[in-house]
């Protein structure tokens, strides 16, 4: 059976300080919702960093990384370390783009980490449209990024922060089970998560009442917008070659990344337009 991460990545952030790009490296990797916690993910992060160092030409061991599992941790980390590059979940990207001066340079291609479309899923037959969910409990991975949820995922139909009673969860299937149990009225799942949820006892009653437009993937971003074109080119080359290389393929595999590809400008552009700034 294919192994999948059912929780989409909220933020996989590779932070590289400006100084590091300019010369001595000071690299941090911040990854959330790939599963596990900061400590247990560190060996994977370290292997990833060592590979990047070797391909970009940084001194061995110069890059530092961290795996962070919540928006709060990410914000704190960014404030503390001033990283240079991140692999970040689209919700966080759109919400912090201006504040952090983010520039998307690549995106992740992964059937395990990326949700190309999301659905609002309910169980109660009386709930037919989003309007029926007014004031109801919605448990989602996107509760920490309500603006992205409202504008990009729900296409501006409702203001999620005020329309629903939101609760942040760490696992998509957790939301599905909460709906089945009656702990909440709705959750948000992608196609695969919805299919998987239907295998859970009582899951056949789950159904989507709303489907989002196409959603952007996880972008690789630079912070501060001050990366030199040559450094940026070096990093893009290193990332795009990584998953096809003999030494990088296993690292991509353990991080559940299929490959790094150029940004899908159409989808990102449309999402940006919906987000509105």
């Amino acid at each position: 059976m294919k192994t999948r991460i059912l929780a989409p990545v909220v933020a996989i952030v590779l932070f590289v300080s400006g100084a590091a790009v300019a010369g001595p490296t000071d690299v941090a990797i911040n990854v959330t919702r790939l599963g596990g916690d900061t400590v247990s993910a560190q060996p994977f992060v370290d292997r990833f960093l060592r590979h990047v160092e070797s391909k970009v030409g940084w001194a061995a061991g110069s890059a530092k990384g961290a795996f962070l599992v919540s928006r709060k941790d990410v914000l704190a980390y960014v404030a503390d370390t001033k990283p240079g590059i991140g692999m970040i979940e689209p919700g966080l990207y759109f919400e912090m783009r201006k504040a952090w001066g983010l520039q998307a340079i690549l995106q992740v291609e992964s059937s395990e980490l990326v949700s190309p479309r999301l659905h609002v899923v309910v169980k109660d037959p009386a709930i037919q449209t989003l309007d029926d969910l007014k004031g109801k409990r919605l448990w989602t991975l996107l509760a920490d990024t309500p603006a992205y949820l409202s504008k990009v995922v729900l296409d501006g139909k409702v203001d999620a922060g005020t329309f629903f009673t939101l609760k942040q969860i760490g696992q998509a299937l957790r939301g599905a089970k909460a709906v089945i149990r009656g702990d909440c009225e709705a959750t948000i799942l992608d196609d695969e998560q919805l299919a998987k949820s239907k295998e859970v006892t009582g899951g056949t009653e789950l159904r989507a009442i709303y489907s989002s437009p196409p959603l952007p993937s996880i972008p690789i971003v630079s912070f501060g917008g001050n990366m030199k074109p040559a450094d940026r080119e070096t990093l893009v080359k290193a990332f795009t070659a990584m998953c096809a290389s003999s030494d990088g393929a296993s690292i991509c595999k353990e991080m559940h990344v299929g490959r790094f590809v150029p940004l899908d400008a159409t989808v990102f552009g449309a999402a940006q337009k919906r987000f509105g700034d």
């Binding site: 192994t3 929780a7 596990g36 916690d37 760490g170 696992q171 089970k177 295998e199």
Partner: peptide, 25 residues
């Protein structure tokens, strides 16, 4: 957070899957 991420913890530590029914939790 620990309870919330139990399913992903199972991916990290296969031994966990021997103590929970991974389908329904």
């Amino acid at each position: 957070t620990v309870a919330d991420s139990l399913e992903t913890a199972i991916r990290q530590e296969p031994l966990l899957s021997r103590f929970v029914d991974t389908k329904d939790m």
